[in-house]
Structures are given as structure tokens and as C-alpha cells.
């Protein structure tokens, strides 16, 4: 399975949780907190569901508690993808 890229994550975020008008998702956002990007826990749960389905992985419930930024989210997801779980 291919790794989840920032570009793909942004696309999924846009589709599953919409986009805050005050935020440029096309900018350098890898280390911006999700909350500063306008995404709450519900938006991230919806995003997590999409990633699990599209990438065929099962992600830990605690992932969202620790992954506060896109980079942390990508790292956590890609670790699971690489492990082939």
C-alpha cells in the first residue's frame, strides 16, 4: 500500500470536513495544529474513517489524541501502513 501524502491528506480533509475560509490548505501547513486549520475532533474522526477505508488500515483509537498536526498524523498513519497491518 502506498504511503499517505500531505497532498492526499489535504484532499481528504477538504472532502470529508470542508475548508475554513480563513485558512490556506495549499500553504505550508504540515506543522500547523489541526485546531488552527479549523478542524475539530469530529472533523478528524471523519477524516480518520476515510483514511482507514481508502488505505485499508486499522488505526488506533488513541491516534487522534497524539497526532495534533498533519505531519504527526501522516507519520502515525504511515508507520501503520509500512508495518503492513
Amino acid at each position: 500500500m502506498t504511503a499517505l501524502t500531505l497532498e492526499a491528506l489535504v484532499r481528504i480533509l477538504r472532502e470529508s470536513a470542508g475548508e475554513d475560509e480563513g485558512v490556506d490548505l495549499g500553504g505550508d501547513i504540515a506543522d500547523t495544529a489541526f485546531t488552527d486549520l479549523g478542524y475539530d475532533s469530529l472533523a478528524l474522526l471523519e477524516t480518520l474513517g476515510r483514511v482507514q477505508r481508502d488505505y485499508g488500515v486499522t488505526l488506533d483509537d488513541d491516534l487522534l489524541a497524539t497526532a495534533q498536526t498533519p505531519r504527526q498524523f501522516l507519520d502515525a498513519v504511515n508507520e501503520v501502513i509500512a508495518a503492513g497491518v
Partner: peptide, 8 residues
């Protein structure tokens, strides 16, 4: 409406 509200 704000974009964030549309999917939900």
C-alpha cells in the same frame, strides 16, 4: 455557509 459546515 462556511465550507466547514457543508460536509456535515
Amino acid at each position: 455557509l462556511p465550507g466547514r459546515l457543508l460536509p456535515q
